[in-house]
Design a protein around this nucleic acid. Sequence first.
DNA 1: CTGAAAGCGCTTACAG
DNA 2: CTGAAAGCGCTTACAG
Lengths: 342, 342
Amino acid sequence: MKLKDIAKEAGVSIMTVSNVINGKHSKVSASTIERVNKIIDKYNYAPNMTAKSLSQKSSKIVAVIISISEEDEQKNYLENPFVSTIIGITEKLLRQNGYYAMVCSIKSFEDVLKLLDNWNLDGIMFLNPIYTKEIENHLAGIKCPILVFDGDTINRDMISVNTDDEKGLYLSTRHLIEKGHKHIAFVANYDRNPLLTRRFSGYLKALNKAGIPINKNYIFEYSPNYEEGVKAGKYISSYYKEITGVVTTADMCAIGIMEGAKLCGYNIPDDLSVVGFDDLKLCSYVTPKLTSISQQIDYKTKIGITTLIDCMNAKKNIITPIVIDVKLVKRQSVRNLIFTNN
Amino acid sequence: MKLKDIAKEAGVSIMTVSNVINGKHSKVSASTIERVNKIIDKYNYAPNMTAKSLSQKSSKIVAVIISISEEDEQKNYLENPFVSTIIGITEKLLRQNGYYAMVCSIKSFEDVLKLLDNWNLDGIMFLNPIYTKEIENHLAGIKCPILVFDGDTINRDMISVNTDDEKGLYLSTRHLIEKGHKHIAFVANYDRNPLLTRRFSGYLKALNKAGIPINKNYIFEYSPNYEEGVKAGKYISSYYKEITGVVTTADMCAIGIMEGAKLCGYNIPDDLSVVGFDDLKLCSYVTPKLTSISQQIDYKTKIGITTLIDCMNAKKNIITPIVIDVKLVKRQSVRNLIFTNN
DNA sequence: CTGAAAGCGCTTACAG
DNA sequence: CTGAAAGCGCTTACAG
């Protein structure tokens, strides 16, 4: 079924049917509109997006880009609950607004540019902050709105949605301090990317503010994932018995740390307190339930996608950077070392 | 950059460039191929898929369909690790083979048909078994290969990939029996869909074979998810103290059951043994680590998608139904009640 | 309010 | 081996 068929049956031209479908009602008489719509409903007609895209140079497709580094190529990125949660919300919001989500894992920025040419994309969303610089360099050539989560630069030509990373680790570290912890470890290879560096600075800030000296031995540069977390947990519980608390930059890593410490005979939180980051559903499934920093993933995604949709609809693209607040979510993985009535 | 531009610069016709790009090398001289390819590389030219789709009536897009029931509309389906794992593998395999994954959550089967008209889909993949009947009814009208995971009927005009569901629950139930359990509960509203019914019959089969009478009170018709699992766990630990083991149809539910029982003062597995289903990564993150039935999600998905790709490439569509084997993965959530040297 | 013409960027089918 | 013509199903820009 195509426009031509509908037009024939209605006894009007193709253009008239097109105008009815696209809601240009000022250009068509009420009676014609009704007649055409009946036929459309009758056949459950859906316009061919492929043709529409070609003539309009706009496809209603939003590319949801996950950048995969060479080393992580074997991994299933969607097994990361943080990623899958965001994509789930994204797809739903896009569809409710008439857009389609094309999920693309990408190994180089060139792939993004090709994708752009391929599909007349109406929007692009970047989940990882890997390509911030490349995006900026190509900004002139990319005509569709770009949404960047956790990007490293603030550029008013793209929609940037960030978490208050420094505050996040400031809060988690301060929480341990308030509970009487003095020897607090930080786990994450903080110089790997700016996001982790920002979080690391929150850790330093909290210690400084409390007058606790920074101990370089307490900074463990493991990747913030489960496997590396296990290693960190084992290492800390084996060689740094004086450490009573650990902060890190991802729940998955925190869960690994707990596991590693347990394997070495520790009880959590009796022997080691742990605070995560992300506030995944998972925090409530593990034992003890993990205290974490919420970055309000649902809200963050919703704000980002809604802004993207607004930009796509309005064809505008200049937006104030958005920073999402964080908050501490207390559960069971932190021990109180202060023996008061608290 | 389009074919026309490349053709102009190479001093050839559009057709020749098209033939070079599409590998119809028998139609072009070697020297021309080289000259054209250089220009293509120079500009990093990527063909417009939108135009290609229109003329070829094939888009290289595969719709990855998640059917959302009315009641689950608020939920983020991608927070289900089972779903996100499958989608992650799917996207990767499709892209490696030149196809694009369009993820679509769908509330009615009509939406699928519209999608089909919209995008000249090259393939469709259904994740949930909700629309098996509708698919069959429309099979004549759908010209692209269809992949159905966990569907309820076997139809040789679609690629059906199923898990040996009955065997799955047979294995988990038998495992408890072998460990000396006599009072074994089943948690899942087994008549909600055929998949659950199949699993339920595995439970019955194992009990029958062991000569253990079926106790209707031990069948708890909760939905197999975390929240309902918690309810089931509370209920069982409060009112059925004689039950020492539980099987269910999803890890998320099993984790909920453990949580519910713990909340009522139970120790797992001392007071209650639990066996899940799916063998999610999550099984290793919880305490105790959950014994589960692996349905080999990675393998299952790979087989399904690979077959789909073969069919799309060959334009054929008649396939032997695929049934994936299951196996028991022992961890820590089952207690041995038999006091032997075992 | 209505419609004929030209075009979006590619491919198919054909002539040379 | 090469290319001019027609078409995929829509829209834009225009004439009436």
